[in-house]
Amino acid sequence: MDRTKVLAMLTVLGLALVPVAAWAFDEPFWIDLFARVAIFAIAALSLDLILGFAGLVSFGHAIYMGLGAYTVGILSYHGITAGLVHFPAAIVVSALAALMIGAISLRTSGVFFIMITLAFGQMGYFLAISINAYGGDDGLSINRQSDFGSLLRLDDLHVFYYLVIVILAALLWLGFRLVNSRFGLLLQAIRFNERRMNALGFPTFRYKLAAFVISGAVCGLAGALLANLTLFVSPSLMHWFRSGELLVMVIAGGMATLVGPVLGAIIYLMLEHVLAGLTVHWPAVLGAILLLIVLFGKQGLAGILLARKKVKEAKPHG
């Protein structure tokens, strides 16, 4: 087993031990905090699939999280509480949105791709504000968690927490399989030289679109989980700042490593929490760290923890 996978297992194990620590130190808030961390880890993981492996800088990824969350919120609003409806619906809705957005955006590249994904993200944000029936600017409260019957009671925070961790672990495992599959290798090859892959007869557009849709669907799942944690959805989920934060998590943790984004989400949200306790001006510290990462440490935390060789391989050309 390679070191990336060991690091991934250790990370998941660490997250799984949080409720124990919360109990030992009598700090029940930690479970809420880390449930949030793990959910954002899933979202960052989904972004890494297209950012790290396909080189697609999506600056509007928060829209899928928002769509997933709003799907749960809107279904609950209309009295549909079944989790077996909520989660598939959230995934399908965000996948369809990703299909549509991807089909249009992927015809552009470079900075135009960044801008067009940003435009779609903002459209989602303003759409959520404009639909008054579902709260508009005020957001939408959800009465209770998705209903999976008595087997899986999501209103029990411990049950919910471990569900999130299991999903995260499963997605990591699937992610590792995916990026090392023929599909994953083709994606990475496209990132290095798309023209050559095209010339070799690979339908590169379709490969990128497939990755984009998978990424959107997973991010939608994260959104559905977030809606269940906070029981509240609001347009700010889709604000461009959120999309920026997701990018930061991926980069800070280490691109194209899958486990990196998970670490990135942990670092980002923990820094936010810890710094916020120390100073009201914590975003400045965060900003400084971000600058330092770009100027001096592009490989991210995972890159530092793992062999440097691996990271060099993953570095894109131009």
């Binding site: 808030f29 809420d32 957001g139």
Partner: peptide, 20 residues
């Protein structure tokens, strides 16, 4: 605590109020 006039921030603050 400052809710920044954002509903989602307010929601998180209440969680912190109650549990932390």
């Amino acid at each position: 605590e400052d809710d920044q006039q954002k509903p989602d921030v307010a929601r998180q603050l209440v969680n912190k109020f109650q549990k932390s």
